[in-house]
Simulated scan of single mutants.
Amino acid sequence: MTDARRLHDEAVVADTHNDLLCAVVARPVERWASFFREQWLPQLRAGGVDLQTLPVFIEDPYRPEGALRRTLRMIEAAHRLAEGNADEVALCRDGADIDDALARGRTALVLALESAPGIGDDVELLETLFRLGVRVASLAHFGRTALADGSGEDGTGGRLTRAGVAALQEMERIGMLLDVSHLGAAGVEHVLELATRPVIATHSSARAPLDHHRNLTDAQIRGIAAGGGVVCVNFFAPYLHATDFSIDRLVDHLEHVVSVAGVEHVGLGPDFVKEVLADTTPPCCEVTLVEGVPADAYLPGLEGPAGLPLVTEALLRRGWAEPDVTAVLGANVRRLYVAELGRPGPAGRSA
């Protein structure tokens, strides 16, 4: 579809969750930049990715004792791959950096923390990590942290801990965007009660099409939109449908979130993990990411960023207007990031 490819190439495409840093740090230090250039940059270019969020995800063997050291090592890897590929990418700290990178034809990279296990309840370390370039952070993964319960602990009804409330306040002060993906249901509601600045869901689908704890309810989606935030739909097949792993089911979720939040509050949070798992999991092991579903359940053609033009084609086939397609592809996330990242709140200061 030439019209789809044209539109995709003209649009700003934003991916708010790709764990590629896990694959990068699995290489020797001297290979970090070159491995990214060889393995990931061609995929980002093929997918038209202009704005890429890089989560710092800390695997179980590093928690809790080695979490902070692992966090710092992954942040260092992000800086080195950006410095070693400065002709192609730029690590961005605020909206001006993002606009400059896009104007120069660079892919804008934004550092994020996924559940932030490295800080424990030492909330002051958020500013330390902010100084190192982190601009987005979530409070939990599937389980319990010092800040909140993840969605896998929904049965506890846990809200934010005292430290979690302080973390939200600190993030709003320094200009770090809070990510509610993976947060337990009660925790999301707590965030929406307290937040005075927009929040983001970097990789969360909708619970109405598929009732899974990793997906957001309509009330949560409306709350994020009401605060000016963006819900970025996850591409992981088992979060979209129980059995039909197809791009049509992804579009179903996108259309549902649009119907609830409005098209200006929806984005893409693919969560591409196939290559990362292949790179970081020993052949001896079988990985299950979702209860009873093998980790190799993917949408055909959308196993990695090179397949992103297929999303544009699918949306146009459904009859979406071009401005709505470009909004969801990345314009909404760009608007949010440019407005919020690195911008201090009341009593805040730049770092």
Rank of each mutant, 00 (worst) to 15 (best):
Ala4Gly: 07
Leu21Arg: 03
Cys22Pro: 04
Cys22Trp: 14
Val24Lys: 11
Val25Cys: 02
Ala26Val: 06
Arg27Lys: 14
Phe35His: 15
Phe35Pro: 00
Gln43Ser: 13
Val49Ala: 05
Thr53Pro: 04
Val56Ala: 10
Pro61Ala: 09
Gly66Lys: 10
Ala67Lys: 11
Leu72Ser: 04
Leu72Asn: 10
Arg73His: 15
Gly84Pro: 14
Asn85Gly: 05
Asn85Trp: 06
Val89Asp: 05
Ala90Thr: 11
Leu91Ser: 00
Gly95Phe: 07
Ala96Glu: 14
Ala96Asn: 09
Arg104Ser: 01
Arg104Gly: 00
Gly105Arg: 10
Leu109Ile: 05
Val110Gly: 00
Leu111Pro: 03
Glu114Trp: 03
Asp121Cys: 05
Asp122Val: 15
Val123Gly: 10
Val123Pro: 04
Val123Phe: 12
Glu124Ser: 13
Leu125Trp: 07
Leu125Pro: 03
Glu127Asp: 02
Leu129Lys: 08
Leu129Tyr: 11
Phe130Glu: 11
Gly133Tyr: 06
Ala137Phe: 08
Ala140Gln: 01
Gly143Val: 04
Leu147Tyr: 06
Ala148Val: 05
Ser151Phe: 14
Gly152Ser: 09
Glu153Arg: 15
Glu153Tyr: 05
Arg162Leu: 14
Gln169Leu: 15
Leu178Gln: 04
Asp179Ser: 08
Ala185Gln: 15
Gly187Met: 02
Ala195His: 09
Arg197Tyr: 01
Pro198Cys: 01
Val199Cys: 06
Ile200Val: 15
Thr202Glu: 03
Thr202Leu: 09
Ala206Asp: 07
Asp211Phe: 00
His212Lys: 14
Arg214Cys: 04
Arg214Ala: 07
Gly223Tyr: 14
Ile224His: 10
Val230Met: 10
Val233Leu: 03
Ala237Thr: 01
Thr243Pro: 00
Thr243Ala: 12
Asp244Pro: 02
Phe245Asp: 13
Ser246Gly: 04
Asp248Trp: 05
Arg249Met: 02
His253Ile: 07
Glu255Ala: 12
His256Ser: 00
His256Thr: 10
Ala261Val: 08
Leu268Lys: 00
Gly269Ala: 13
Asp271His: 03
Val273Asp: 13
Val273Phe: 15
Thr280Leu: 04
Thr281Met: 06
Thr281Glu: 08
Cys285His: 13
Cys285Trp: 11
Cys285Ile: 14
Val287Pro: 00
Leu299Pro: 13
Pro300Phe: 02
Gly304Val: 12
Gly304Arg: 13
Gly307Phe: 13
Thr312Met: 01
Glu313Asn: 02
Gly319Asn: 05
Trp320Ile: 07
Thr326Leu: 06
Ala327Met: 10
Val328Tyr: 05
Gly330Ser: 08
Asn332Gly: 00
Tyr337Val: 02
Val338Pro: 08
Glu340Asp: 10
Glu340Pro: 04
Gly342Thr: 09
Arg343Thr: 14
Gly345Ser: 02
Pro346Ser: 11
Arg349Gln: 13
